[in-house]
Amino acid sequence: MLPVVLPRDYVVPAGFADVARRVWDTAEAKVAGLISAHPDQFPLYTEDGKWVVDGEVWTNWCEGFLGGQLWMLSRRAGDPAHRDSFRSAAEHYSSLLEERQHDDSVHDLGFIFWSTYRRWYETTGEQSLKDVLVQAGRTTASRYRPIGNYMPSFREPASLFIDIMMNIHMAFYASQQTGDDSLADVATQHCLTTRRHLIRGDGSASHEAMFDLETGDFIAQTTQQGFSDTGSWARGQAWALYGFGTVYRFTGDRRFLDTARATADFWIEKTRTQLVPPNDWEEPNPVRPYESSAAAAASGGLWQLAGLVDNPALARAYADHAVRTLAALAADDFLASPVEDWEGVLKHGTYHEGKGLGVDESVMWGDYWLLDAVDTIQQYAEGAE
């Protein structure tokens, strides 16, 4: 896997330390409150700022994000006395997901296991934890349809989601760990199909592609969560720029780097003046102007991409945009206060606008990607000291 290497002269702004501390203080309070109030539960979104337990869900894809936050807090919590308790909780909430390594009914095993078992394995080096990651990667690859050359979404066999780009690296990981090239082969074919049919000429990403099940022929671009079939769903755009960058790290295939750059350039063009996007840029005069979880995920994707491109000026532009976006998300308009009744970390996120689920609320992946991006940039800053 290619490392992320930013230009030697890139300096994280001094004010980012304050941004990070605000985020960790809020996360420490909110995540501790969640696992205390709702033990062994994995809520996806809030209603009126309160986590919804056993509410309506579209699919089971978010369970890893709570454990991932706990792993990060086990290192970043401001109160050292809390770090051990977060570590214990991280192991517990991760272990609750173990059987999902065999779950071939969803396309989201990367969301579930990369955020949990990967962090656990990197912390301890225990072989059994890597075995879970490898099996999750094999399960991901097992969904491949040779007629059409793609892994279908959970929704139906004819459907391909851009979201899968954030999970397909599990198959590449399993291939690298086992030497089974067939896993990487099908994952590469899926990525090429996604690149061909979901990424438009201007770098925007469609949410979904539909295929003929008998011939594998592409039928049309559609959407489940955007404004229209021809729209630009912001979270899908973030999945594209982050996912193609990650796949480039695993493969070194510059076609995927080029795609990551195109989707990132579209993102930056759309967010130059308003760093946090609406749910879909094509929606005229959106009632809700923000979808913060998309901005949080895109920040991590932009930072990763900054360390992959070989143009120092472009790298700085991507890194600066990531840092500026995180600073906006850590401001009072978006970041909850540690002491207020709002139970999530990041406000103004959306789960599914069309279904009316978690709209203008906190969503678990928004909280996770905010912490993940902040943690990654802190690690870089600490390494440069």
Results as ranks from 00 to 15, higher is better:
L96H: 13
L96N: 15
L97D: 11
L97Y: 07
E99R: 13
E99P: 03
E99K: 13
R100S: 07
R100K: 12
Q101C: 05
Q101G: 02
Q101E: 10
Q101I: 01
H102S: 07
D103K: 04
D104S: 06
D104L: 00
S105D: 13
V106W: 15
V106Q: 15
V106I: 12
H107G: 08
H107E: 06
D108P: 11
D108N: 09
L109Q: 08
L109C: 10
L109I: 04
G110A: 01
G110H: 02
G110R: 00
G110E: 00
F111G: 10
F111M: 04
F111K: 08
I112Y: 11
I112T: 12
F113W: 02
F113C: 02
W114V: 03
W114T: 05
W114C: 07
S115I: 00
T116S: 15
T116G: 15
T116Q: 15
T116Y: 12
T116C: 15
T116M: 13
T116N: 15
T116P: 14
T116D: 15
R118H: 09
R118K: 12
R119I: 00
W120A: 03
W120C: 03
Y121W: 12
Y121F: 14
E122Y: 06
E122C: 06
E122K: 07
T123C: 12
T123V: 07
T124S: 12
T124Q: 07
G125M: 06
G125Q: 04
G125D: 05
E126R: 13
E126G: 06
E126P: 10
E126D: 14
E126L: 11
Q127A: 15
Q127I: 13
Q127Y: 06
S128L: 09
S128F: 02
L129F: 09
L129G: 04
L129H: 05
K130H: 08
K130T: 04
K130G: 07
K130L: 15
K130R: 13
D131E: 14
D131R: 08
D131I: 06
D131S: 13
D131G: 10
D131A: 15
V132H: 13
V132A: 12
L133C: 01
L133I: 00
L133D: 03
V134I: 12
Q135M: 11
Q135F: 14
Q135I: 09
Q135Y: 14
Q135E: 13
Q135P: 08
A136N: 05
A136D: 08
A136I: 01
G137I: 04
G137A: 05
